[in-house]
């Protein structure tokens, strides 16, 4: 019996997406192999990139271990973002929690101004997450997109309830969309299909929702594995996008972390 190393080669290529502009520009995606399968035929030109999380207001219920490295900086989002940069991050991820109707219901204008200031003051590309409230995000995220036109921010979550208005603003103002759907391959593809009717697919990053260990990580694990396989192995255009895992909050809100 002859052994031949079972190397594989695939047809699909994950689209290369660029976030940030000028010398801040960062490329993600572009691979035609599965994650970590460097032994197969193909390449992974852009390794996974790491961003640190910044909130637009001082966190109320975060654990001390998490906040300690940031010191006083957490009282000011811009300082907090700059502190993140000193840790060698590839990008900064700002979440506009204060705009959540269940939090301060802060207005869109102020949030957009903060994003603009942060984008101009930090040296790394900026990822911006709204509160996740699909109605409020439909006001806040288009405002952010307009005020920061041309910055090529990575903006989300774009959800099935608000993809038209948020997606349009992302398109018109030169940004990249985070298409978010709740842990389901079909919902994920459906949203991408709808979004890509007007937004070029190389301006879409998939957020399949991440879960913490012991709180459903197996769902995220298998969904991400499937998305990558359907994209890379079977060349399904609507899953050939890079994936973002926004997992800080998911992990730190668990009982064990606290």
């Amino acid at each position: 019996m002859e052994y031949k190393a079972p190397k594989e080669a695939y047809k699909g290529v994950v689209r290369e997406v660029t976030i940030g502009k000028g010398d801040k520009a960062l490329k993600i995606g572009g691979e035609n192999i599965l994650p970590l399968h460097f032994f197969d035929e193909g390449s992974l030109p852009n390794p996974p990139r790491f961003a640190l999380e910044v909130l637009d207001m001082e966190p109320a219920d975060k654990v001390p271990h998490l906040l300690e490295p940031f010191g006083d900086a957490i009282s000011d989002p811009i300082k907090w973002a700059k502190k993140c940069e000193t840790f060698g991050v590839d990008a900064v991820c700002l979440t506009l929690v204060s705009t959540d109707p269940a939090e301060k219901d802060a207005p869109a204008d102020g949030a957009a101004q903060l994003v603009k200031r942060m984008a101009s003051e930090i040296k790394k590309p900026l990822i911006v997450y709204g509160s996740g409230d699909e109605k409020k995000d439909a006001e806040v995220l288009p405002k952010v997109a307009q005020v920061c036109a041309g910055e090529n921010l990575l903006i989300g979550p774009v959800q099935k309830e608000n993809y038209e208005v948020v997606g349009k603003a992302i398109l018109d103002n030169g940004h990249v969309a985070i298409a978010q759907s709740p842990l389901d391959i079909n919902l994920l593809k459906e949203l991408n299909v709808k979004l890509c009717k007007f937004l070029p697919p190389e301006r879409v990053v998939i957020d399949p929702l991440s879960s913490a260990l012991g709180y459903g990580i197996e769902y995220s694990f298998s969904l991400i594995e499937r998305v990558k396989q359907i994209g890379v192995i079977t060349k399904d255009s609507m899953t050939m996008m890079p994936i973002i895992a926004n997992l800080g909050d998911e992990c730190w809100k668990t009982k064990q972390a606290k």
């Binding site: 019996m1 031949k4 079972p6």
Partner: peptide, 18 residues
Amino acid sequence: IRDQTFIRRAALKQGFRP
């Protein structure tokens, strides 16, 4: 990761008994 993956693939996809 390579070795573990190749062993699993060889066993399952190639039916390679050894």
